[in-house]
């Protein structure tokens, strides 16, 4: 096990960073907000994290916090500015935001290292620190998938007008979605820059959106379990199949395409739907109709 860990430490770290990146794209999607800003937040987290390490000699935990908070602050502004947008328009505005972060990375002078990027970002980051950070986000995600929070998030996503009539402040939920997306994306970016000790414009491009989207679309957008499944799948797939490594992009494209057509709710959605169908079959037949016929006598009396 230890030998396995030593041999795969880089990819194990990448898996956990991938989970956070996937979460940062997933959180807004769960709220029905088609924001791809997670990739931009990742870039902000990476460059802010890199800078505070190089310039202020910060260690891993405070540097991750700086990256996450900086990205969340940008997320708050973005969420407020884009509040009136929906659907495709919002999606494209956030894609433009991601690309803008890439332009800033190229043109940022000494703060971003220009086209070559930043080097020598060395910290005390260890796997346990990564595990704790990712764990915090996953626990928060799990809590949001239970009880009152779960019901309200479902309402905000599926039917914002209905949600408003149920006393839910849809706009506030959406802005919070941007902020949480910023926290997760920023933390993911900061941890990534520390595990690799370097960051450049090529690392924050549109490719990130595609990678995260692949994970979410295949894993499932409605639960953190989908994000985790997708992140593990697409971090390890190129390792397991060398053919995939060479044609990675092509495989991703085909997978996104097929999942987009045939599996809109991802693997997690497939699992949930199957379980529900089996449960419905186990219930006595015609129960709903029977209840339906019971009512009139009491009610019309």
């Amino acid at each position: 096990m230890n030998a396995f860990y030593d041999g795969h430490v880089v990819i194990i770290q990448a898996t956990f960073v991938g989970i956070l990146l996937a979460l940062s794209i997933q959180v807004p999607l769960r709220l029905g907000v088609f924001s791809f800003a997670g990739a931009g937040f990742y870039g902000i987290g990476a460059y802010v994290g890199g800078n505070v390490v190089i310039r202020a000699d910060l260690q891993a935990v405070p540097a991750i916090a700086c990256g996450a908070v900086a990205a969340a602050a940008v997320g708050l502004v973005l969420g407020l500015v884009l509040q009136r947008l929906n659907g495709l328009y919002l999606a494209m505005a956030t894609v433009a935001f991601d690309l803008m972060i890439g332009v800033v990375a190229v043109n940022g002078g000494e703060w971003t290292g220009g086209p070559t990027g930043l080097y020598g970002i060395l910290t005390d980051l260890t796997l346990p620190i990564i595990l704790v950070v990712v764990g915090v986000f996953l626990v928060a995600a799990e809590l949001s998938e239970r009880g009152r929070a779960h019901r309200r998030i479902e309402a905000v996503r599926e039917d914002p007008e209905l949600a408003a009539s149920m006393g839910i402040r849809v706009g506030a939920y959406r802005v919070v979605g941007f902020v949480v997306s910023g926290l997760a994306g920023g933390a993911a970016g900061a941890m990534n820059v520390m595990t690799r000790t370097t960051i450049g414009p090529a690392d924050v491009g549109f490719g990130l959106v595609i990678l995260a989207l692949t994970m979410i679309i295949v894993g499932g957008a409605l639960s953190w379990k989908g994000a985790v499944a997708g992140a593990i799948l697409f971090t390890w797939l190129p390792q397991v199949l060398t053919f995939v490594g060479e044609w990675q992009e092509l495989v991703y494209g085909c997978v996104v395409l097929l999942a987009g057509i045939f599996l809109p709710r991802g693997l997690y959605g497939l699992w949930v739907d199957t379980r529900r169908r089996l449960a419905a079959r186990r219930r006595p037949p015609a129960l709903s109709e029977q209840a339906h016929q019971d009512v009139p006598q009491e009610m019309t009396s």
Binding site: R151, E154, A155, E158, D159, E161, L162, A163, A164, S165, M166, G167, I168, R169, V170, L222, V272
Partner: peptide
């Protein structure tokens, strides 16, 4: 605001069925 109407004690139903498909009847 629209979301405050409910808190003031006004509830409504809609012309079309608007239930959340991934929640049970109870939820």
């Amino acid at each position: 605001r629209a979301s405050d109407i409910a808190r003031h004690g006004i509830a409504r139903t809609f012309q079309t069925v608007r239930l959340l498909p991934d929640l049970t009847v109870e939820e």
